[in-house]
């Protein structure tokens, strides 16, 4: 059986920095305050013609560096490329954060005596290693929308469809179509893709 290779793509020509994706994410997974699995960053703010925004979260990298450096091996990569981790194995050491090119890992202060607890990150709305759609999975990792055949919350609500997610073939198709219809300079790859997926 062949699987999709799930990837995120944020179109900086379309992103209007509404922060809807990060709100949708926080609401969907009932994230604690201060934990931002997805964020919107605006660059060259206020400079005409140069300003743009992008939405960033875990890119679910190929050969994810977080998975490679984890001292307790709490990460696993699904057949469809989604990078997930087991919070009951994670020790919150922070190595995944040092290894991550996107600053995706988040650390809630819910450990012993309010210290840094175990890591939390974007699951591409695919939950975790617990039983699919169980109360425990929801409590630890948030919604498992992928299992229900739904689009991840962030992309689902994106009003301008700047943020899209899906099989790389489909995402690439949309990307090429958009670049062509704009009729101007072609980027080699979508923002962050060369770092996340190589080439």
């Amino acid at each position: 059986m062949s699987y999709a290779r799930m990837k995120f793509y944020c179109d900086e020509e379309r992103c209007i920095e509404c922060n809807g994706c990060s709100v949708a994410c926080a609401e969907a997974h009932e994230l604690p305050v201060g934990i931002s699995r997805r964020k919107v960053v605006t660059l060259n703010d206020g400079i005409e013609g140069k300003e743009f925004s992008v939405s960033v979260a875990c890119m679910h990298c190929t050969d994810a560096p977080c998975e490679q450096v984890c001292p307790v091996d709490c990460f696993y990569i699904r057949e469809d490329g989604i990078v997930l981790h087991d919070k009951e194995i994670c020790i919150g050491c922070g190595y995944c954060l040092y290894a991550c090119p996107f600053g995706a890992p988040q650390f809630p202060k819910d450990g012993a005596f309010g210290t840094r607890g175990v890591m939390d990150k974007c699951t591409m709305c695919a939950g975790g290693p617990e039983e699919t759609n169980s109360a425990k999975e929801r409590e630890l990792y948030g919604q498992d929308r992928i299992a229900e055949g739904k689009v991840p919350a962030c992309a689902a609500m994106c009003s301008t469809k700047a943020l899209i997610v899906g099989d790389e073939q489909e995402v690439s198709k949309i990307y090429r179509k958009r670049v062509m219809s704009r009729g101007k300079g072609v980027q080699s790859a979508p923002y962050g893709w060369s770092t996340a997926y190589g080439n």
Binding site: K39, V41, V69, L97, C100, F102, A104, G192, T195
Partner: peptide, 25 residues
């Protein structure tokens, strides 16, 4: 701060990020 910074990591990742990954792995 690291928890909120993001994209800023990407460009300089090759300097220390990759070295850390290489050594740890």
């Amino acid at each position: 701060l690291v928890s909120s910074q993001m994209i800023d990591n990407i460009l300089h990742y090759q300097t220390w990020g990759e070295l850390f990954v290489y050594l740890q792995v």
